[in-house]
Structures are given as C-alpha cells and as structure tokens.
C-alpha cells in the first residue's frame, strides 16, 4: 500500500508540472486591440495662424485628470478647423475617414460668439465634420463641445444622431 501511495504522489506531482507548463510564457497582449482615444486635437488655420489645441487623457479613464487647452481665437475671423484623433501616439484619422459614412462629428458652442458651419461630407454626401469652418465674432468666452458619433442612425439630426459616442470632449474657448 505504501508503494501505491508513492505512485499516487508521483502522479500528482507530474500533473502539477504539466499544468505549470500550460501557464509558462502566456503573457502576450497581441490577442486584443483596444480602441482607446486618448487625445483629440483641433487644428485651427486661418487669420495668419496655424495652431493645434489638445484635449488629452494620457493615462485613460480615471487616474490623472485630462489636460485641456483653451482654444484662443481672434474676433471676426473665418478659420478652418481640422480634427485629429489619437490612440496614444497613433493618429487614427485614416480609420475614421475610411468609414466616414459611419461617423459624424458634432459641435455645440456655448457662450462664445463662434459659429461652426460647412461640415465636410462623407462618401454619401451626408455631414461628416472632420473639417469645418469656424467663424468668430465679437470678443467673448465660452466652450465648444465636440462629439464623434459611431454608426449614427440619423446624420441630419445633429443634436441626437443615434449610435454610440466615441468621444465627447469640451474645450474652453476664448475670443479676444
């Protein structure tokens, strides 16, 4: 019987070792790719300036608070705005432009004397908004909220286009 017990113990150890092999060398992150947007940049050109303003949360949700730059504009100038979207250091604009039919940028200005218009269009001619015209008026301060909708169901309804929100960021705006 002692002999049997020994065999049993040896069996257990063997199975344990086999299981240990399973675990060894399994740390690989290439099985997943997350769609993380960590930075949204607004590139403003016109009126003699070409500047980028960033909304960035480098460490993801929670943790350190995001850093947000104030968009400063001159009064009474018509600017072109171009949005740049980043996942870490990688710009993902190509992905978004490649599926322009499934994306919509919306802009909501509060307080500031700023009008966002002339959103560029997607492959079907519906609003897209990666590029737009920002026209400033008298000196003022306020905010601009920019959202990117994925798979919107109604692109003509900018206040509630349906789908999911990929990002929803608000920049302070100062016109002076």
């Amino acid at each position: 019987m002692i002999h049997n017990t020994k065999i049993a113990v040896r069996n257990f150890l063997f199975v344990l070792m086999a299981a240990g092999l399973f675990v060894a060398g399994c740390k690989d992150d290439d099985i997943t790719v997350e769609e993380n947007i960590t930075k949204v940049e607004v590139q403003i050109t016109g009126g003699g300036i070409d500047k980028k303003f960033a909304w960035e949360d480098a460490d993801g949700d929670g943790g350190n608070a995001p850093t947000i730059e104030t968009i400063t504009l001159l009064p009474n100038v018509a600017y072109s705005a171009h949005i740049h979207v980043y996942d870490g250091a990688t710009e993902i604009n190509d992905e978004i432009e490649g599926e322009s039919n499934d994306h919509l940028f919306t802009f909501t200005v509060t307080g500031a004397n700023l009008t966002v218009s002339e959103l560029n269009t997607d492959a079907n001619g519906a609003p897209f908004g990666l590029e737009s015209r920002w026209t400033s008026a008298a000196s003022s301060t306020g905010t601009v909220n920019i959202k990117l909708y994925h798979e919107p169901t109604d692109k003509s309804n900018a206040s509630n286009p349906g789908g999911d929100v990929d990002f929803d960021v608000t920049f302070p705006v100062q016109i002076q």
Partner: peptide, 9 residues
C-alpha cells in the same frame, strides 16, 4: 466591442 471595421481592432 463595437469598433471601426477597418481599424486594427
């Protein structure tokens, strides 16, 4: 998750 169909994800 729901992701962009042409992206790396």
């Amino acid at each position: 998750d729901v992701v962009r169909s042409t992206g790396s994800a």
